[in-house]
Design a protein around this nucleic acid. Structure first.
Lengths: 269, 269
DNA sequence: TCGCCCTGTCTCATAAGCTAGACAAGTTCC
DNA sequence: GGAACTTGTCTAGCTTATGAGACAGGGCGA
């Protein structure tokens, strides 16, 4: 089903080590512990550990020197979007500019209970459900979005419009005033469908965001479940101490700079 | 090395499905697709899929009825902490009250390059490095914290103090005024060490938070790398539209209610 | 009652991931 | 030169997860 190979233990170690390199926990030039000790750390035989290293060497992230050791050779620095958590709307605008969207599905459904409850819908009510994938200019997918919108609101836009316009923009156009939003952040593993959409392997870690948007009257207008590839996207939040020195509260700063809309910036070091 | 069993494909499916149930994507009472189609979706044989279901049935999350289908029977609702992202300090205070800490390590080290850079330390400078695990009252670990503090600041507190007092509290005591913080959220997989500390399996998804705290003079005083079990902890952020109707910015709301310090609340439905 | 779709259960075989070891060979330092 | 590391390579085998199929039987609706 998936084209990738399947030595699972080795793959897990591969993913783990690649992550350590990418995150800088293992810096370029660092010498890895010896294969025997690494194997012990992961609880596998040296051969399987070796398979994981082989792959990293193949990708030029590691270099091995017989008799000396294994070293981090290259740090993969992928295009990475950084979005400011505190600035949803501006994000969207920038997103629309800097990223592309592909609409995967568009349908009217009766939502799962959890979503119906979050949207405070009456029993049996239907929603407009859409699945989209966002990707960078170079076509690299970085997020998978599943949105549910109450049916009567969803009716105000078409499938074709959703394929090109940010959802919050469509809602705004149809008179909905987004007033309040509740976001939750967590982490998950990629299932088969999402894994394919985001071009990762099943079992890869994903950053999960759930957002419920309410209008001025407190009615829920959108339920969004977003999954992000952590290697291509992460959220940032700048916090400022609120009030006097010694105050206990911190206040989130919307964005590093108000004048320059750097809410969404691309790091390509 | 890890006590758990190892049918890896089946286990992955088990984890995935359990996640879907826990998150409510599969609600209680829902009927699962038939075993053949599920097997196809995950790209495995029906037997291996079955092994995953067996385990879920064993845990009473699923019920099977011969001739009818498999249904979600019980939704595991674990103790879960919800912390408000926008209120770091208050979080800490509440954390100290509602959770326990275990100090895993305490040492002075020369930090990895990535951390030295984030702290803007001169080359070769050392840091006070600590690893801690936070757990709920019932002893369930939910986060793994790795902190780096510049050596001269770290010298103002002892190992014993860190084992009982929140780090930011210690910094405050030693005259450091935390003024600004930069947080980044992402997702990772649990490595062997963290997996053991958090009592999860290697390869489980974790929510990752990196925080760099600066003092009034803009000097970095703390680098924190926190890993959270998503099933026991998640971050929440309440956003309010800033300014007039139609404004593009949203402003994070520190906490649902200023008067009641509900920044950290425990959901045990 | 028949047909269809579902779970329940078994078989056996294949495959292949993984282990455990031994040994060669490169490098560094004393 | 030798000790103590390291990576490189192979082997042989075993454990066991996994696959594919067949068949039974329950439930439900046409």
């Amino acid at each position: 089903m998936d084209a990738a190979v399947e030595p699972l233990k080795a793959r897990r170690i591969y993913l783990l080590l690649r992550e350590r390199i990418g995150s800088g926990a293992l810096a370029v030039g660092d010498k890895l512990p010896g294969e025997p000790s690494l194997a012990a750390e992961f609880g596998v035989s040296r051969m399987t550990l070796r398979r994981a290293l082989d792959r990293l060497v193949q990708e030029d992230l590691l270099r091995r020197r017989a008799g000396v050791g294994t070293f981090v050779h290259h740090r993969e620095l992928p295009h990475r979007l950084r979005a400011d958590l505190a600035d949803v709307i501006e994000n969207l605008r920038e997103m629309g500019r800097q990223t592309g969207v592909r609409l995967l599905s568009f349908a009217y459904v009766t939502p799962p209970d959890a979503i119906a409850a979050a949207l405070a819908l009456p029993a049996g009510a239907r929603t407009q459900r859409s699945e989209r994938v966002r990707f960078l200019e170079d076509g690299a997918a970085f997020s998978h979005l599943t949105a549910h919108v109450p049916e009567h609101i969803g009716a105000t836009y078409s499938e074709a419009e959703l394929a090109t316009t940010p959802l919050l923009g469509l809602l705004e156009r149809s008179g909905v005033v987004a007033d309040r939003a509740n976001q939750t952040m967590s982490a998950t593993l990629a299932g088969p469908d999402v894994a394919e959409a985001l071009d990762v392997e099943i079992g890869s870690p994903l950053l999960a965001l759930t957002r419920v948007v309410h209008d001025l009257d407190g009615r829920a207008v959108e339920h969004l479940h977003a999954l992000y590839r952590p290697d291509r996207f992460h959220f940032q939040l700048e916090l400022l101490r609120a009030g006097r020195v010694g105050a206990r509260r911190w206040r989130p700063m919307a964005s590093p700079d108000q004048t320059e809309p750097a809410a969404l910036s691309q790091t390509r070091p």
